[in-house]
Amino acid sequence: MIRKHIKTGFWALLLMLPMFSACHKVEVFEDDPYGNFDALWTILDERYCFFEYKEIDWEQVGLKYRKKLTSQMTSEELFDVCGDMLMELKDGHVNLVSAHDTSRYWDWLYGSPENYQERLIDEYYLNFDYRYTCGIKYKILPQNVGYMYYGSFSSTIGEGNLDQILAYLSSSTGLVIDVRSNGGGSLSNVETLVSRFINRETLVGYISHKTGPGHQDFSEPYPIKYSPSNRIRYQKPIVILANRGTYSAANNFVSVMKALPNVVVMGDITGGGSGLPFSSELPNGWSIRFSASPIYDVEGRHTEFGVEPTEGFKIDMNLDEADEGHDTILDRAITYITTGGA
């Protein structure tokens, strides 16, 4: 009798399985213009993190661009329609990648001065004679001001490299960290660098993530704290140089450093890009990258559209002076340090 009940129960369990499995049905999109467009729209609708902040009516955007589809359109025509739709997000972290092109939003760069000339720095300030390691150029300028240029947070900074750099710069009266035209990279490099300029555990911002597909489904902001390095730390005044090309992880670096004492940010407002990007893909194999998880500054504010320079230090490069070998922004930073903060 018991045996019979056991067997009956077991088969009943097995028969119940499809009922539960049916809940797991995942929407499948066709590999045609409409299917790929709908897949792209849906991925962003569920996972993009700045709809509310940017006040974007994604439903209307979808309707507007879906009207432009035809079932016979070429792959390149479809790419153009999708790329135009993505421009509505005004987000440099949004890229649609196909075999023939990559859509990108760089409008914030086009409408602003570049405010950085690498050749000018190399020739007139570094005299083509500088130290270079882990993606960082560094030198003590004649005014006894330390100068570091870090062009990409994708270049991994080693602790040993930083020890060497900071030991070399330790005799300077202050340090200029130039992250102009730094397009970002890894956030872990931000912490590695910042940990050399703090002396206690420091709240540097918050991170949040989507908890569901709704545009308002977000977790509570979680505090991001950095610990000081137990190796060489720099304690003197620091000036950060930024421009509109300072983006993503570099934007985060500026946001973090700006909140520290003894730090001044000079130059232009940064390019922004505060959403941690995720990736996904369409049935035709195109890859889509998008902002998925917002990172806020220490005050809990978005920095998606950039970080302002410290008040009173918004400076554009004077191109006439540049022609004569002067970087207006760097000159101001040197003066600031050599005059003790004037």
Binding site: T211, D217, S219, L276, S293
Partner: peptide
């Protein structure tokens, strides 16, 4: 056929950076 247990999963849009680095 497992019936009950415990398993790991991130939240919907949660990055591994947030979970294990932060």
């Amino acid at each position: 056929l497992p019936v009950v247990g415990a398993f790991f999963s991130p939240a919907f849009g949660q990055s591994y950076y947030e979970m294990f680095y932060i």
